[in-house]
Simulated assay, not measured.
Amino acid sequence: MTDTPKGYWVAHVDVRDPDEYKKYVAANATAFAEFGGRFLIRGAEQDVVEGQLRSRTVIVEFPDLAAAKACYESEAYREAKALRDPVSDADLTIIEGWGG
Rank of each mutant, 00 (worst) to 15 (best):
residue 1 M to N: 13
residue 1 M to V: 13
residue 3 D to I: 07
residue 3 D to E: 13
residue 4 T to Y: 11
residue 4 T to E: 14
residue 4 T to K: 15
residue 5 P to Q: 00
residue 6 K to G: 05
residue 9 W to H: 02
residue 10 V to E: 09
residue 11 A to V: 01
residue 11 A to L: 02
residue 12 H to P: 04
residue 16 R to A: 13
residue 19 D to S: 12
residue 21 Y to N: 06
residue 22 K to L: 07
residue 22 K to R: 13
residue 23 K to T: 01
residue 24 Y to K: 10
residue 25 V to A: 15
residue 25 V to G: 01
residue 25 V to W: 08
residue 26 A to S: 09
residue 26 A to V: 13
residue 26 A to W: 08
residue 27 A to S: 09
residue 27 A to D: 10
residue 28 N to P: 07
residue 28 N to K: 05
residue 28 N to M: 06
residue 29 A to R: 03
residue 29 A to D: 11
residue 29 A to M: 02
residue 30 T to H: 01
residue 30 T to P: 09
residue 30 T to Y: 00
residue 31 A to N: 00
residue 31 A to V: 06
residue 31 A to Y: 02
residue 32 F to G: 02
residue 32 F to W: 02
residue 32 F to E: 09
residue 33 A to K: 15
residue 35 F to Q: 05
residue 35 F to K: 08
residue 36 G to P: 04
residue 36 G to D: 12
residue 37 G to C: 12
residue 37 G to S: 08
residue 37 G to E: 05
residue 39 F to V: 04
residue 41 I to R: 09
residue 42 R to I: 00
residue 43 G to A: 03
residue 43 G to N: 04
residue 46 Q to Y: 02
residue 46 Q to R: 06
residue 46 Q to P: 02
residue 47 D to K: 11
residue 48 V to M: 04
residue 49 V to H: 10
residue 51 G to P: 00
residue 51 G to F: 00
residue 53 L to R: 13
residue 53 L to I: 05
residue 54 R to E: 12
residue 54 R to F: 11
residue 55 S to C: 08
residue 56 R to Y: 05
residue 57 T to H: 06
residue 58 V to I: 12
residue 58 V to Q: 07
residue 62 F to P: 08
residue 62 F to D: 01
residue 63 P to H: 11
residue 66 A to K: 15
residue 66 A to V: 11
residue 67 A to T: 09
residue 67 A to K: 14
residue 67 A to D: 12
residue 69 K to R: 15
residue 69 K to E: 14
residue 70 A to L: 08
residue 70 A to F: 12
residue 71 C to M: 09
residue 71 C to F: 07
residue 72 Y to E: 09
residue 73 E to S: 14
residue 73 E to N: 14
residue 74 S to C: 13
residue 75 E to P: 11
residue 77 Y to A: 04
residue 77 Y to E: 07
residue 77 Y to Q: 00
residue 78 R to A: 15
residue 78 R to K: 15
residue 78 R to H: 15
residue 80 A to V: 07
residue 80 A to R: 03
residue 81 K to E: 13
residue 81 K to R: 14
residue 81 K to F: 11
residue 81 K to D: 12
residue 84 R to A: 05
residue 84 R to G: 00
residue 85 D to S: 03
residue 85 D to I: 00
residue 86 P to C: 00
residue 87 V to H: 07
residue 87 V to M: 02
residue 88 S to M: 02
residue 89 D to S: 14
residue 89 D to G: 03
residue 89 D to Q: 12
residue 92 L to F: 05
residue 92 L to Q: 04
residue 92 L to T: 10
residue 93 T to E: 07
residue 94 I to Y: 04
residue 94 I to F: 10
residue 95 I to Y: 01
residue 96 E to S: 09
residue 96 E to W: 06
residue 97 G to K: 10
residue 97 G to N: 05
residue 98 W to Y: 15
residue 100 G to V: 10
